Every structure is written in C-alpha cells, then in structure tokens.
Amino acid sequence: MECVAVPVRGPRQLRGTSCTVLLAAGFLFLAAPLLGLEGRTFFGRSPEDSKAKAQRILLSADAVCFDVDSTVVETEGIDLLAKCYNVEEAVKNLTRNAMEGNVKFQDALAARLDLMQPSRHSLEECLKTEGKPRFTAGVIEVVRRLHARGTHVFLVSGGFRVMIEPIAEELKVPQDRIFANTILFDEEGNYAGFDETEPTSRDGGKPAVLTQLKRKRGYKNMVMVGDGATDLQARPPAKVFIGFGGIQIREKVKQGADWFVYDFQEVLDVLPEA
C-alpha cells in the first residue's frame, strides 16, 4: 500500500495510512468518555458484557445481599403460613402478583396477612410444623465461601423475621444483618398488623435497605441476589443483580438480571475459596 502524507499542525508529519488509523483509534479511546461514547465497540473490541461484569464484581464484593424465599430456601414463607390457615391458593396468587411486580408489595403483604389473621399462639404452632427451612442446593456453600473471603452477607427479605432468624443462624449470618418484616400482636396475642416502619414492608424497600447500608457502612461493591421484581429494584444501589431461577423463573427478572443463574453451582464455579 502506498504511503500517503497526512499534514498535521506543527513541524512534524505522520506518514502512512496505518499511522492515520492508529492516530484516529487513539483519539477515540482517549476522547470516548468526553464524547459520551464509552461502552461502544470500536475496531472489533467489545465492551465487558453484563455477565462478565457481574462475575467480576462478585469476586470483589464487600457485601452480598440475598433474598430469602425461593432463593436461599426453596419455599415462600408466607405460603407456608397460608397452608396452616387454609388460604394457601389465595395467598399464592397474591404472592405471585407481588413477585412479578404487578401489585405494590405493601398492598399484597397486607392482603395476605388479613386473609390469615395469625395469632401469636397459632403462628408458634404453625412454625413447629411448617417452619423448618429447606435450603436451596449450594447456597450454604456460597455463603460459607463469601464469609471466608471477608464478604459481609445480608438477608434482605419481604418475609417475616420470625421465620428468617433460624435461617440466618444456620448460615452464621449475624442478627443485625437481617432485614425483614415483623408481625404485630395486641396484648391478647391477636393479629394487629405488621410493622410498617420496616423498609422491606413496602415497595422499593430493598433498594432503601442497600442505600442505607452503603451510606452507613461505606460498601463500594454491593451485589443483590434474588428471584423477584423487588430484588431487581435493588440495582442500583447494588452494582449488579444476580437473578436466581432455580425455584421460580420470572421472565421480567431473567431479562433484567446482569447474570441469571439456575443453580448456585454456577456461582460456585466462579467463586473460589479464599
């Protein structure tokens, strides 16, 4: 190829078509952030895809927040309670609508508890028969490896604290790293609503929790893991969202996730022991 002289300002000249291409490439690389072109593909080089980013952030995460129901455990806690009160099908429908983002979470929570009207005594009896957690395959090892790496693990759930505390104990997650809902009772032990001051009791509660954690504890690389629309809402402030489809596959969550996994073994494959 014949070399063509390319005039430039100053005493020097760049010669050769290849020189011109290299100069242009260098200009685009350096100027991309100023021109709003970051993340674009130039000369066959692709930006980091969302799955690779999620895996990279996970390896450097200082905090990982897990949804609990249908993620850490195989069941939906409120559905287990509904079975005790013989309103299982109606509650399941409300749960499905809430997790798919079709109804505000606080409205679905209130409606489900109103159907059950759990007293303190009946709730205690229910938990004796239905409350034993069935952990999702691989999740205990995932949490153990995160702990070994010095990563702080949080349980951030729209479920109930009374059901989540035994799960946290099994996972060796401290009580102050649980964010969940509290059922309230009157002096006679009758159902009296739920604690509406808990951020997880309302729509947008999970991003509110992560924002609070980021502000108070200074986390830089936060990851959210979950199966529902309320979990997807937590990115940002989470840098990435890992969608979990091992129990329930929700199309909105699958499409919105940075990385969608069907089995926690996929996470273990990229999360070596510390």
Rank of each mutant, 00 (worst) to 15 (best):
C3N: 11
A5T: 04
R9C: 12
R9T: 06
G10H: 07
R12E: 10
Q13P: 00
L14M: 12
T20A: 13
A24K: 07
F27P: 06
L28K: 09
L30G: 12
A31Y: 05
A32Y: 00
G36I: 05
G39E: 13
R40H: 06
G44A: 12
P47K: 12
A54C: 13
I57V: 15
L58A: 03
L58K: 11
S60L: 04
D62A: 00
A63T: 09
V64Y: 01
V64G: 02
C65G: 03
F66Q: 04
F66D: 01
D67C: 08
V68R: 12
V68E: 09
G77D: 06
D79K: 13
L80D: 03
L81E: 08
A82Q: 02
Y85S: 01
E88I: 01
A90Y: 01
V91L: 07
N93D: 14
T95W: 03
A110Q: 14
S119E: 11
L127G: 12
K128M: 11
G131E: 06
P133S: 11
E141G: 14
H147C: 03
R149Y: 00
R149G: 12
T151Q: 03
V156S: 08
V156A: 04
R161I: 09
M163I: 04
I167K: 07
L171C: 12
P174D: 15
D176S: 02
I183K: 09
D186W: 14
E188L: 15
F194K: 08
R202G: 00
R202Q: 10
D203P: 04
G204K: 09
K206N: 08
P207E: 08
P207D: 09
V209Y: 02
R215C: 01
R217Q: 03
R217G: 00
R217F: 11
G218C: 10
K220D: 01
N221K: 15
M222R: 09
M222A: 10
G226P: 01
G228R: 03
A229K: 05
L232C: 04
V240T: 04
I242Y: 02
G243K: 07
I249F: 00
I249W: 00
K252H: 01
K252R: 15
V253C: 04
Q255A: 11
G256I: 13
W259Y: 12
Y262V: 07
F264W: 12
L268G: 11
